[in-house]
């Protein structure tokens, strides 16, 4: 029998891998929420578009890295376009209306993805072809390290931007107090555009990095978006650090639950976590108010 210790290490690895993806999606959701006041529930579709656009670009002959970069740009542009075409024209509508719009966009994008890429799974090659690493009896696939690395680098860059650039500080200011930000001349419409474009970029990166492990389908984003949303709630929707902690935590909880509970419950775990958080600590781990 495999030692239970090594099994737990294995759960931890897969939890951290998927948790990194949840964390990035949650981060994009939280940044968007604090700038615009709404949740962009189409963010999962940005993951799909990033991953599947990369697949197509490779199919038409782009070298890997170029395909990935272009796919990220495509998803970023989808975010830009979504904001300009659906959110900005309705900016005076209620928050509920705007969130419903994002659901509508999500369904439309998923439909478009189905038409373009069909129902069968696609894949991208692992970034390096190396043998899996053995660690304390558990197996760590190299691609997981890339996913963890992406999360660390993306979060590092983002915090550098937020802490050390004037524009980043203006974004943070708007996240802290939208009215006061407007009163010093920060344009919320421009920030909203930034938030959606940024979401497209970060989601596409997540999709491209995770696809070698999970494969990509037209509806892969639905669950990922939902999990990212749960992670954001778990961490506290007002707090970027909370989103990251929430994402990683959710990934680990899921992995351990999937390993020890009946596998049919796998996706229910996230929802159970969300319900428990909302009932016991509605502000999340690091949220305020």
């Amino acid at each position: 029998m495999l030692g239970s210790e090594s099994q737990y290490v294995q759960y931890l690895f897969s939890g951290l891998t998927l948790g990194s993806i949840y964390a990035l999606i949650a981060l994009a959701l939280v940044v968007t929420f604090n700038i615009t006041g709404i949740f962009n529930l189409a963010i999962g579709e940005f993951v799909t578009i990033g991953a599947l656009a990369a697949v197509t670009l490779r199919d038409v002959g782009c070298p890997n890295v170029l395909a990935y970069i272009l796919a990220v740009i495509v998803a970023g542009l989808v975010g830009t376009l979504m904001e300009r075409a659906t959110i900005n024209p309705a900016r005076k509508a209620s928050v509920l209306t705007l969130i419903i719009i994002t659901i509508g966009v999500s369904i439309a994008l998923r439909g478009a993805a189905l038409l373009i890429w069909g129902t069968h799974p696609h894949t991208l090659p692992a970034f390096v072809h190396a043998a899996p690493l053995n660690f304390l009896g558990a197996v760590l696939i190299p691609q997981s390290l890339f996913v963890l690395g992406l999360a660390v680098v993306a979060v590092g860059l983002l915090f550098t931007f937020f802490d050390f650039t004037f524009t980043g500080k203006a974004v943070r200011a708007a996240m802290m107090n939208r009215t006061a930000a407007q009163l010093v001349g920060i344009n919320p419409a421009r920030l909203s555009l930034f938030a959606f474009t940024f979401s497209g970029v970060i989601a596409a990166l997540s999709g491209i990095f995770i696809t070698p492990i999970t494969t990509a389908t037209y509806d892969m984003g639905f669950m990922l978006g939902l999990k990212g949303f749960v992670a954001a709630i778990l961490g506290g929707v007002t707090n970027a650090t909370g989103a990251i902690i929430g994402g990683v935590l959710l990934g680990v909880i899921e992995a351990f639950a999937a390993g020890t509970l009946p596998s049919g419950l796998k996706d229910a775990i996230a929802m159970i976590v969300m319900i428990v958080v909302l009932l016991t600590r509605p502000t999340g781990i690091l949220g305020e108010r």
Binding site: F166, K169, A170, M176, N177, T179, L183, V184, G185
Partner: peptide, 22 residues
């Protein structure tokens, strides 16, 4: 504005500089 409406987690310097954002 009423009740000051500062950017609470930014430094005083950043609050002042952001006043000059435009």
């Amino acid at each position: 504005p009423e009740n000051r409406q500062l950017f609470p987690f930014l430094s005083v310097r950043d609050n002042l500089l952001l006043g000059a954002f435009h």
